[in-house]
Design a protein around this nucleic acid. Structure first.
Lengths: 363, 363
DNA sequence: GTGAAAGCGCTAACAT
DNA sequence: ATGTTAGCGCTTTCAC
């Protein structure tokens, strides 16, 4: 493995001169024990590399006796396929990448599980990339795809970042999940954020609230802009003029961010009597923040969240929220990607999954 | 597990010529952006592949004019290095893997960030693997390492799973984080779980509690066994005979698991008046479960958690817990690994980081 | 059924 | 400063 460090360059470092190997073409040094190749197995088994390759790949036309010899040699030598080489040959890596803005947000966890399970089911590995919603990091992960180290990718990063990837990336095998702009021409799966936000607000309205605040995430997210519009329109339809002072955009979805936003929101004369937070983590922070300024939930201020992470049911009071079908979102994203991989020419569709209002104690 | 390559593919890639056309402004792309190799660039630039390789790798001895020609050709062709080939040649992938039992547990998020930041700082990519604490999955991810697709790995999975990897894996470049058995001879970083658990229990004792329950995770985790021992010994030292009915082992760290465990625990005659949960997520569930059976925290039952995830301060009541230096844990693990990669021969040490009791409202 | 040999795309000696 | 060329370890025709 790479244990025989390569920085030392060729032949120098590991004094173990393996084979005369006279030729030019400085090979990275490697020690024999670790680095047995298919050729070594072939030699040990007294067959050709082609035959070894055949048994490795389960081809039919190998005599059982031969197969056994090879298997024995593999076993004895502890040989492992070097997939780098295999992939170079087959031009596929069987790796799928999933880019998320924040692995710490529980919302993504279930989605990721969905992706992972269908990927694995189809013989792919899914590897998670934490981009921190940073364009530079996003870009470098995308390069992994561009440079063939992964076969495909699923991106949950902000719309604005996706756009910045450049037009060239449109040809790459990736799909957008949860955060997507249909106009971008990339396959996607997500929910109808506009309508979902409207549903949340209409629930609050039905409960008799009129001064409804919105705690939103960064406007770099298209979903944030859509949910805001849903919020605005629902209010307008109810004949309510939305007060700009009831709205906040946060660049973090952390609990703390929600808590201090809530405190800020309440610290004004005409404060809201209900708050719609676009993420459960935010909403949980909001409840905490409300409590810290002496407000009771839902009596003084009602709170509605978004996502329905598992924690939502556990806090006090249990959170009323808009549920997203997270597992399915992930599974669908993976299927879309696999579909695109299998046939690069077909036009993979965008799909919208249903959301659902879950009424619990907070509103 | 060797997987025979699926039928998907190769034929498809050649027909890529007539690709997207989806986007407007449809100037026919003058090259099959997919297929160009270093040889193509060399040809376009009128130089040899060696020269192209030189400018690609920033070598000195290239005349500026030549370099420019090459750069232009690269630019015009949209060429990207095929890292598979590069890696095959250099025998390193610059990929680091991190295996976690559950990406959904917030405890791991900060650790992962720590790993990621030092990895990136050193020119490595860190990719996350969700093993679900499943031996099979763990094993297959480990194969990525074994088969050279990653240069190194950091494992946070249960001790029992680590052991099952087999002796051969001892030679592989990986380190254990948070969950480790010094006897295994693998570099590690973590905390003193035995002492930390003792500290938690002693705090409860100092608060006057005598019937202290333990809600623990699966015994497959060494840390669970160590914390249980710490709990037991602390009780014994205080002259208290630990009642086995106060102890539970859960195979999940989910909130729900904690909630129902708490309910079960309280549903007995001589119920605990305090509970030590070995994870904050569990503890939060415990508080919820306690509330659902009519117990107040901390008045009726005190609760101490473990980890100090950011949520711990946000719930009601704020959670008293044992803080682990998560970020540092991750950073240290990454440094250990890098160290081992740089010099496979040095004996990388195990390191223990300090924990700390954080007293808040729940106990 | 098995082997010989041609590359996959790249890097690095070794020439020039 | 640049070109030639030998592989890295593997899969896969094409012979036998």
């Amino acid at each position: 493995m790479s244990r025989s460090s390569s920085k030392a360059g060729p032949a120098g470092s590991s004094s173990v001169l393996s084979q005369p190997s006279a030729q030019a073409g400085g090979r990275p040094s490697r020690d024999a024990a670790e680095g047995i190749s298919i050729a070594g197995v072939a030699e040990q088994a007294g067959v050709s590399v082609a035959t070894v390759s055949r048994v490795l790949n389960g081809h039919e036309n190998v005599r059982p006796a031969t197969r056994d010899k090879v298997l024995a040699a593999i076993d004895a030598s502890g040989y492992r396929v070097n997939e780098l080489a295999r992939n170079l040959r087959t031009a596929e890596s069987r790796l799928l990448l999933t880019m998320v803005p924040d692995v710490g947000n529980p919302f993504y966890a279930e989605i990721v599980r969905g992706i992972d399970s269908v990927a694995r089911q189809h013989g792919y590995f899914m590897l998670l990339c934490d981009t921190g919603a940073d364009p530079g990091r996003e870009r470098s992960y995308f390069d992994l795809l561009r440079r063939r180290r992964a076969d495909g990718a699923i991106c949950l990063d902000p719309d604005t970042i996706q756009q910045a990837l450049g037009e060239a990336s449109g040809a790459l095998p990736w799909v957008a999940c949860c955060e997507f702009d249909p106009a971008m021409g990339v396959p996607y799966v997500g929910i109808d954020n506009y309508r979902a936000a409207g549903d949340a607000v209409r629930h609050l309205l039905a409960r008799g609230h009129r001064r409804i605040g919105l705690i939103n995430s960064d406007v770099g997210y298209l979903y944030a802009r859509q949910r805001q519009q849903g919020y605005l329109d629902a209010l307008n339809e109810a004949g309510i003029e939305p007060d700009p002072r009831w709205r906040m955009n946060l660049n973090s979805l952390d609990y703390e961010a929600g808590a201090s936003a809530a405190a800020t929101l309440m610290n004004q004369s005409h404060a809201p009597d209900a708050i719609f937070a676009v993420s459960d983590t935010l909403a949980i922070g909001v409840i905490h923040g409300l409590r810290s300024v002496g407000k009771r939930v839902p009596d003084d201020v009602a709170v509605v969240g978004f996502d329905d992470i598992s924690l939502a049911a556990q806090i006090d009071p249990p959170l009323t929220t808009i549920a997203q079908p997270m597992r399915e979102l992930g599974e669908t994203a993976a299927r879309l990607l696999l579909q695109r991989l299998a046939n690069p020419l077909t036009n993979v569709p965008g799909v919208l999954l249903p959301h659902r209002l879950v009424i619990r104690g907070s509103a």
